[in-house]
């Protein structure tokens, strides 16, 4: 067993040997410190202080304000709906891709890969072009005698927002779930068939259990994705719609409602929810790797 002093000596030796390596890390360390760690600490610190000392007043304000609780609820529902639908479409699309011919699959994957980065303001605009009050599809269905906006639809409301969120969730879900389908080997189907399992039994006992971690992991990524989304809703409703990210931004950059403490607390709450879903993804990811090995 090495003694404490010899451990110290070894560490010193390593430090001397790696002094240049440590210097090489410095530029990155400075950027990470200044723009990742300090902002996070500042955020947390600001959220739990009021006046001169420690206080949970900011959290109390949020937790007792109907306005902020509604924005949290709206964010969660919007994210949940778009994630559940996104995962569902993603599973179907991944399955369909898996069953398609090579050329079709490659073309579709390429298209989806492009769409996954098409989001935010341009996406909001594109949806106004098709579903705005004089959008292309709005006009098309009005020719068929249905006036969407008379029926209560509006792209600027919850329904419209859900449709747009769904747009950016689908490509992400498909790209994340597709590899899991690819992981289901032809040999497994053959081995199962050899052991007397039909297609139904195969999917019941082998296929779905294999996919489950990937599906749940993807769901958690989509939740985090939607919860933190800002640009789409901002551009569509000029920052008015009541979801948590827009509330936070109003609190920190708005002139009337400027309250950095409250903004920090709201940001911490949102961050913690995101961490929860990302942790779920990590658990699922390790499970997925486990079945693949």
């Amino acid at each position: 067993m090495p003694s404490r002093s010899s451990v110290l000596a070894r560490n010193l030796k390593l430090l001397r040997k790696e002094i240049w390596s440590i210097l090489g890390l410095l530029p990155f360390a400075l950027i990470a410190l200044g723009f990742e760690i300090l902002p996070t600490l500042r955020l947390v610190g600001g959220s739990i202080s009021a006046g001169d000392g420690f206080s949970l007043a900011n959290y109390q304000t949020i937790m007792t304000s109907k306005f902020y609780l509604t924005s949290l609820k709206n964010s969660l529902i919007l994210s949940l709906v778009s994630s559940v639908l996104g995962v569902t479409v993603g599973i179907l699309a991944a399955y369909a891709l898996n069953r398609s011919r090579q050329q079709l699959r490659d073309a579709m994957m390429t298209f989806i890969s492009i769409c996954v980065n098409f989001a935010g303001v341009p996406l909001a605009f594109a949806f106004i072009v098709i579903l705005g009050s004089s959008g292309a599809i709005t006009l098309l269905v009005s020719k068929l005698g249905i006036n969407l906006y008379d029926q209560g639809f509006s792209i600027y409301t919850w329904t419209g927002l859900s449709l747009i969120y769904l747009y950016f969730q689908i490509p992400l879900a498909t790209l994340l779930i597709y590899p899991a389908f690819y992981g289901i080997r032809k040999e497994w189907v053959e081995a199962a068939a050899n052991l007397g399992a039909g297609p139904v039994q195969f999917w019941r006992y082998i296929g779905l259990p294999t996919l489950a971690p990937a599906i749940l992991g993807t769901f958690s990524i989509l939740m985090a994705n939607a919860l933190g989304a800002y640009a789409t809703a901002y551009a569509l409703t000029t920052g008015i719609y009541n979801i948590l990210p827009l509330r936070i931004s109003r609190l920190i950059s708005g002139e009337v409602s400027y309250d950095p403490g409250l903004a920090s607390a709201a940001a911490v709450i949102l961050g913690l929810i995101m961490v929860l879903f990302l942790a779920l993804n990590q658990v699922m990811l390790s499970r997925f790797r486990g079945t693949k090995a």
């Binding site: 985090a224 933190g228 931004s249 920190i252 950059s253 920090s264 940001a267 949102l270």
Partner: peptide
């Protein structure tokens, strides 16, 4: 996400 980072 950006909105959180921006607050800090």
């Amino acid at each position: 996400p950006g909105v959180i980072l921006a607050v800090g």
